[in-house]
């Protein structure tokens, strides 16, 4: 229970960063932190107490395994997160080249 709540606190730190900060790089950092929290929450839900990793061994039969389904979902989500981070970083570099700043309020002023 306390583990779930700590995971939620980590999520809200990232949410605060997205909502409050005005620097584009800080917003990317907030998106990365929320993504880590969601990945961790998936794996926490699938953990079984005193379980073993879901890999069969050759010489013994392992009966008590953790849930492999959230791990498979998170494995694809990690690589997708990397691709999204690269895409947002490239957009931030392009915005810096056009406006000379990372501050989103100044970008809005220069637009009109």
């Amino acid at each position: 229970m306390s583990l779930y709540f700590l995971c939620l606190v980590l999520f809200s730190v990232g949410l605060y960063c997205i909502l409050r900060k005005r620097n584009l790089i800080k917003i990317i950092i907030g998106i990365a932190i929320t993504e880590y929290a969601v990945n961790l929450f998936f794996v926490l839900v699938g953990y079984k107490m005193h379980g073993r990793a879901p890999i069969h061994a050759e010489d013994q039969a392992i009966l008590n395994m953790v849930d492999p389904l959230p791990q498979a979902l998170v494995l694809t989500a990690i690589v997708i997160g990397l691709a999204i981070t690269a895409l947002i970083a490239s957009i931030a570099i392009r915005v810096y080249e056009k406006y000379g700043t990372f501050d989103i309020t100044k970008i809005r002023k220069l637009k009109g």
Partner: peptide, 25 residues
């Protein structure tokens, strides 16, 4: 797919140069 795609993304990000106007900074 993953290796070649990430290598392409990284090459594009690294070899990108800012235009002359912003190089002064």
């Amino acid at each position: 797919k993953v290796g070649a795609g990430l290598f392409i993304i990284f090459v594009i990000l690294v070899t990108f140069r800012l235009t002359k106007k912003d190089d002064r900074e």
